[in-house]
Nucleic acid binder design. Structure first.
Lengths: 345, 345
DNA sequence: CGCCCGCGTGAGAGCGCTCTCCGCATCCTT
DNA sequence: AAGGATGCGGAGAGCGCTCTCACGCGGGCG
């Protein structure tokens, strides 16, 4: 370390010179391609170590047209990204998968439409090889943006339109909801209510559909739309109690809303689960386990979903398979859910 | 859009040709440098629009040695990153500031020492112009790693060593703690306890120091070390009640721990704030407002801290100031805190 | 024993951009 | 009106890397 910030990083040229080979051969060794004889490989390796050579990614990208980087785009109409650890867990899964494949994660947070243009430009600019998009609302145009930019994309959560070219990863919202409602019925509950999420998001719709699968004839007054916040959950619970005072169970479309609902139930003196059984959805570690009482909820493996998203994207990015093998058509993934029984139901 | 994915992105060359100027002039216009006459500027602009030209970042980086990207490195010994929205908020602040300066955010999550090597290589590889590091523990070697890689760095939170070349951004943990304790004393409380964070983190130490500033002679039994989790807060509260049954106030070093403490107090039948007043630290939106009762806590502007970190880093990256102005020595920043009174004290 | 094939290596041409010259036109000065 | 100062625009040299292509050497075959 002579002068901080002034160490001129060694180039491939330097490595080649030191190893006494051509730049081409040095490149071959660095990139691990076949057909270089062992002694040469060894010499280049040593030169790399001695010089502390690290390839210049910009130069490499310039010629290969590969960035080994993917963008994670988070639309943030509401501030959900920052109030629950949902995305954080998903991002961790993504990060793990990308790291395992030597890819970098470029995080793009958007706020408002002005940012959409920015993101569009960025994606079109070929800075990344693909994009993982989280757009919570059905009508979000981020995915369209990515397609226009010609960037391979995988979406987090089922998108609002039907189109089997669009890849996504989602959990089995509908099935999970069915399990939750069936469980409540199995407990002998007769008046099962549902606090839904915002119905412009497919996750909310799917969970509601699951509820209806099991209770097709439920009194419409038993269903209230919330907004995935504790406040929203509280408001919805209040409304439900007013409309159907004798309800004895609630399936809430998210743990966060459930926490608000529990608070209301406690305030009005209904015991959980004795008077009203409550089941949530998500199994957010820091929420479900720490409500009072701890929440029975539908578990989804969020981190795994992140990993799957990244994996799926990476696979679509791979060259069309040189071997004789038929190029396996990448397909969207729906992960299973699982009911976790704690104390609230 | 002829064939998807096959649209050859236009180059500067193409823009120049269409505008009838040289590549150099086109470059000047694109980069907004002075000394190009209006009509030419206009022609180039139009060519850019018509062709949908977006500069190739790799090519640009190759010559300028600037990436316009900074890394956000999150050490994750514990899983705190994923259980509280702390980092998410900070990241949002960072993102905002970077976006405003046309920089990208590359997220590097680490788990274990193997990842440290990876991060070291990445930083040394010159992929990014600077790094923002969150290392929670005093002895973390991530900052040293970054320095060795010759990458300008700003640290989130006061680092464990004294060294004024190391830039950091932190909130006034000590002052905030003092305010909290003074407030409790002002309420007439006589037995004020403290649930500290893990004492290998400076934030915890500073908050404890603040507590001691006001209560230098506090009974040592009134101080218990927690771990920034709800469970840890609960355990600490239980221990405190056992050791000092007549305590009438607790200053908890984090809202998340305070939520655990509140739960214990409720369980054992102590009323909050009547019997025991509780003050937290952080003012995490989704925690402090939704505990029962809502938490009186020390507010810190987390997002602002993120923004400041990014701003500080960007400033150190700027060329040494061409104007006659003395290059202002960038300095660490300590942001103020503010007590937010809700219902728990 | 000579020819050809093939493997291993080197030479060199760019990838798309920035930026330093350098030439030329324009305008001001005396 | 001539010389110089000034400013605008173009030519061209790389930045560090990958990859194609051509070349040389050795071995198997005829």
């Amino acid at each position: 370390m002579s002068e901080p910030g002034f160490a001129p990083r060694p180039t491939l040229e330097a490595v080649a010179a030191r190893a006494g080979v051509s730049r081409a051969t040095a490149s071959r060794v660095v990139n691990g391609s076949e057909g270089v004889r062992a002694p040469l490989v060894e010499r280049v390796r040593r030169a790399v170590d001695e010089l502390g050579y690290v390839p210049n990614q910009a130069a490499r990208t310039l010629v290969t047209r590969r960035n080994d980087a993917i963008a994670v785009v988070v639309a943030e109409p509401e501030t959900r990204f920052f109030t629950d650890p949902f995305f954080a867990q998903q991002v961790r899964g993504i990060s793990r998968e990308l790291t395992a494949h030597d890819n970098q994660l470029v995080l793009l947070l958007t706020e408002g439409t002005a940012d959409y243009q920015r993101v569009g430009r960025y994606l079109a600019g070929g800075h990344v090889d693909g994009a993982l998009i989280f757009s919570l609302h059905a009508e979000d145009e981020l995915p369209a943006l990515a397609r226009r930019a010609g960037v391979p994309t995988v979406i987090g959560g089922r998108p609002g339109w039907s189109d089997d070219r669009t890849l996504y990863v989602d959990c089995d919202n509908r099935g999970g909801a069915r399990d939750a409602v069936r469980y409540l019925l199995g407990l002998g509950r007769r008046q099962v209510a549902h606090i839904a999420g915002p119905l412009d998001q497919t996750a909310s719709v799917d969970r509601l559909d699951g509820f209806r699968d099991v209770l097709p004839d439920a009194d419409p007054r038993l269903i209230v739309e919330g907004d995935f916040t504790p406040e929203g959950g509280a408001r919805a619970m209040t409304a439900l109690l007013e409309r159907v005072p004798d309800l004895d169970a609630v399936f809430v479309a998210s743990d966060v809303m459930a926490s608000g609902a529990l608070r209301v139930l406690r305030t009005v003196g209904r015991r959980v689960p004795e008077d009203v059984a409550v089941v949530g959805f998500d199994d957010m570690v820091s929420v479900a386990e720490w409500t009072d009482p701890p929440l029975t909820t539908v578990h989804q493996d969020i981190e795994e979903m992140g990993r799957l998203m990244a994996g799926l994207l990476l696979r679509t990015l791979e060259p069309p398979a040189q071997g004789g093998a038929e190029p396996v058509r990448a397909a969207s993934i729906v992960t299973p859910t699982r009911l976790v029984v704690r104390a609230s139901a």
